[in-house]
Amino acid sequence: MMSTDKRPSGLAQPVGAPSPGRIAAYLGLFVLGAVVGAAGGLVQSGWFPGGLLLALAGAGGLFVGGARATGARAGALAPAAGWMLAVLLLTASRPEGDFLFGAGVGSYLFLLGGMALAVICATLAPGRQPGGPGARLGK
């Protein structure tokens, strides 16, 4: 018995559906972003100018590396979301009055610099291109 469905097999799956491996990579990048954000929050105030630069360089390297490893902008956004979540949770003061981030220039530079790096890396990351040979119209 023949099937009446004449669609090619490549069109059976939605084009934008991520594979389970890609989803695992994004989740791993999210967790790694949270770890880098927590470590950066500790380092940036320890050695003021050097620690701040080290924390921002680590975050920027993770954002760029995630984008290049996955070949998509979401590769930069996943660790940026984890970084942002960790940093925002660490800025909240506890009921005992303890806090990790002081109200100093270094803390604000870390927060704003990390957000700026996330936006820059996600903007400049290469978008996913469809596979296949390139073709020019009109030829």
Rank of each mutant, 00 (worst) to 15 (best):
1 M>C: 15
1 M>W: 11
2 M>R: 14
2 M>G: 13
4 T>I: 10
6 K>H: 14
6 K>A: 15
7 R>C: 00
11 L>I: 10
12 A>F: 14
12 A>K: 14
12 A>P: 04
13 Q>I: 10
16 G>Q: 13
16 G>F: 15
18 P>N: 10
18 P>V: 15
19 S>T: 13
21 G>N: 07
21 G>Q: 11
22 R>I: 11
23 I>H: 04
25 A>P: 06
26 Y>A: 13
27 L>I: 05
28 G>N: 05
31 V>I: 12
31 V>L: 12
32 L>P: 03
33 G>F: 02
33 G>Y: 00
34 A>W: 03
35 V>K: 06
35 V>A: 13
36 V>M: 07
36 V>D: 00
37 G>D: 03
39 A>R: 08
39 A>M: 15
42 L>Q: 15
43 V>M: 14
46 G>N: 07
47 W>Q: 08
47 W>D: 06
49 P>Y: 06
49 P>M: 04
51 G>A: 09
51 G>H: 02
52 L>H: 00
53 L>Y: 06
54 L>H: 02
55 A>H: 03
56 L>C: 02
57 A>P: 01
57 A>S: 09
57 A>T: 10
58 G>A: 04
60 G>C: 02
61 G>Y: 01
61 G>I: 00
61 G>W: 00
62 L>M: 02
63 F>Y: 12
65 G>M: 07
65 G>C: 08
65 G>N: 09
65 G>T: 07
66 G>S: 06
67 A>D: 02
67 A>P: 03
67 A>S: 13
67 A>R: 03
68 R>Y: 11
69 A>C: 10
69 A>T: 07
70 T>D: 14
72 A>L: 12
75 G>H: 06
76 A>E: 02
76 A>F: 04
77 L>A: 14
78 A>F: 06
80 A>C: 01
80 A>T: 01
81 A>F: 07
81 A>T: 03
82 G>L: 03
83 W>N: 08
83 W>T: 05
84 M>V: 11
85 L>E: 05
85 L>A: 14
86 A>F: 01
86 A>G: 05
87 V>D: 00
87 V>W: 01
90 L>I: 09
90 L>D: 12
92 A>S: 14
93 S>F: 08
94 R>G: 09
95 P>W: 02
95 P>E: 02
95 P>A: 04
97 G>I: 11
98 D>I: 13
101 F>G: 04
101 F>P: 04
105 V>G: 10
105 V>L: 14
105 V>K: 11
109 L>G: 11
110 F>T: 10
112 L>S: 09
114 G>N: 08
116 A>K: 03
116 A>D: 03
118 A>Q: 02
122 A>L: 01
123 T>F: 14
124 L>S: 12
125 A>S: 05
125 A>H: 01
125 A>N: 01
127 G>F: 04
127 G>E: 13
127 G>A: 15
127 G>I: 09
128 R>D: 07
130 P>C: 03
131 G>I: 01
132 G>M: 07
132 G>A: 08
132 G>P: 05
132 G>V: 08
137 L>D: 09
139 K>W: 10
